[in-house]
Design a protein around this nucleic acid. Sequence first.
DNA 1: ATGTCACCTGGTAGGTGA
Length: 265
Amino acid sequence: MKLATWNVNSLSVRLPHLLDWLAAHPVDAIVLQETKLTDDKFPLAEIEAAGYRAQWFGQKTYNGVALLSREAATDVTRNIPGFTDEQARVIAGTVDGVRVIGGYFPNGQAPGSDKFAYKMGWLEALKAWVAREMATHPDLVLLGDFNIAPEDRDVHDPVAWAGQIHCTDEERAHFRALLGLGLHDAFRLFEQPPRSWSWWDYRNLAFRKNQGLRIDHVLVSDTLKPRVTACSVDKAPRRLERPSDHAPVVLTLDEPVAQSSSPSS
DNA sequence: ATGTCACCTGGTAGGTGA
C-alpha cells in the first residue's frame, strides 16, 4: 500500500501535475493541501477519470484539503471535531483499514503573531483529537504539510532559521508531542540523502540552490511502523514548469500480516 | 538581491498569504 501527501498550492493550477504524477505513481491514497478551491469548484470528474475517489473540504482563496483514494474512504471527518475553525485544514478517512488523517497545519507567520497563537491552539486541539483517533484506529497515518521543521537537520541553514517560523522551540515541542502519542516520523526510519527537503521557497532560486525545509511529514502509528518499507520525497515535480513549492512525500507499507488461526506454540 | 507565486478586489495595480 502506498500513501502520499502533497501541498499542491492551488489545485486548479496544479491539476495537470497531479494527474501526471498519479499516472506515474498510482498510490492507493493521497492527501492534498492548499487546494484553494470552494467545494463547488473541486475537479471531481478529472480525478475520477484518473481512477480515484475523492473527499474534499475547501474554502475560497486559502487552505483547502482533499483525500483521494482508489477505494472509497469511509468515516470521513472534516477539520478537528470540537475545535471551531473557519479554515479548511483537515480531512480524514479510513482507507483499506488505515485511518488516514491529512492536515494542512497553520503556517503561523511569525512567532508572537496572532497567526502563531492560532497555530499553537490548532496543534493542541489536533494532538488531543489524534490521541482519541488512535484509541479507536490503531493503524493510523497522520500526514500533510506540518509547517514545522522538526530538527536542525531538516533546515538548509539552521543558523539563519533559528527561532524563525517553522523552527521555533514551541513548534518543535508540538511535533515531539505528536510523536509522544506513539507516532513515528516515517522519513527518519530510513537512511536519506543529506539535505533532504520537502519545500523550497519560490524566491531566491531556492530550489536550484537546494535551500529548503523538510516540513511535509508522514507519521505512522506503532502498529503500522513494522509495515513501513519506504518513505521518500519525490523532487521530480518540483523541477517541472510552474511547480508547487512543495514536493510529494510517499510512504510504502507492506500488506498486513495475516492473522493465523493455527496455534504457533 | 525582497531574485516568487496564487488569489483576491477591482484593475489595467495593489494587497495578502505563503
